[in-house]
């Protein structure tokens, strides 16, 4: 049974996911997932640990291709094109669909080189153009004022929250259409979390955002749509307001009222 996908408003669809099943070796992590992720909105995926929410989001930019035992069935359409089609280059997918990970993972390079890494890979060599991209990306990620005087210093010297905003800036530097955020605040303190949430909220003006979180308040605060996953199944998906005030499934209600998870 796949839940009915109803969107509150007429909004173009970025991702259409159909009958998605995924395995790590013989363990099935996702079961018959069907859902739509609307463009330029924030979609949150919630659920208890091990429910498959990270697996789901990691399918969307084909980063799970790198895991040797991983196997996938079903379709993921991005702007009408099946991203797992043999004719699609995973590198193009990852350029258009950026990802920020749970633990901040800055490269052991300078702040500048962290941001310039992606643009350089696609052949941007011009120094002043790189300077422009670095400044613009850091500004978009709301960290420019904190680092503008230390661009040549190590990215590892930044605090955890700054590192995570740097990673967001690094992702924005290759000008993606989508931002996938895999529990971006789980390693951060409440103040750093607040800054990132504020940032995410502003980013939906320009980007489609999908965020995985085990923090339900966070999902309620920032997202427009919410999907609730349980043991690899999508229990419920719909406008965040409805999921949190009037869930259709009793399991969703139990989870959001804190009875398990």
């Amino acid at each position: 049974m796949s839940p009915v996908v109803e969107l509150k408003e007429e909004q173009p669809i970025a991702f259409g996911i159909q009958d998605l099943n995924a395995w790590y070796g013989s363990f099935q992590a996702l079961k018959n997932i069907s859902m739509s992720i609307p463009e330029k909105r924030i979609t949150a995926i919630i659920g208890p640990s091990g429910c498959g929410k990270s697996t789901l989001i990691r399918c969307l930019n084909r980063i799970n291709d790198l895991i040797p035992d991983f196997r996938l069935e079903g379709q993921i359409y991005f702007k009408g094109k099946e991203i797992n089609d043999p004719s699609v280059d995973p590198i193009e997918v990852r350029l258009r669909i950026g990802m920020v990970f749970q633990k901040p993972n800055p490269f052991p390079k300078s702040i500048y080189d962290n941001i310039a890494y992606g643009p350089r890979l696609i052949g941007v060599k011009n120094g002043s153009r790189l300077d422009g991209i670095v400044e613009e990306s850091l500004k978009k990620a709301a960290i420019w004022n904190e680092v503008k005087d230390s661009l040549r210093k190590s990215a590892l010297a930044l605090s955890g929250g700054q590192q995570q905003r740097l990673c967001i800036a690094r992702t924005l530097a290759v000008d993606p259409e989508v931002l996938l955020l895999d529990e971006p605040c789980s390693a951060l303190d409440p103040i750093a979390t607040g800054k990132i949430e504020e940032l995410i909220y502003r980013l939906k003006e320009e980007y489609t955002v999908a965020i995985v979180t085990h923090n339900m308040q966070q999902a309620a605060r920032v997202s427009n749509y919410t999907g609730f996953l349980l043991m690899g199944e999508l229990v419920e998906f719909g406008p965040t307001e409805k999921i949190f005030t009037n869930p259709a499934d009793s399991r969703t209600e139990e989870y959001i009222t804190g009875r398990f998870g």
């Binding site: 790198l66 990852r94 990970f101 490269f107 890494y117 890979l121 990673c167 992702t171």
Partner: peptide
Amino acid sequence: EGSFALGA
């Protein structure tokens, strides 16, 4: 993973 995610 960070590098791959940037299209490397």
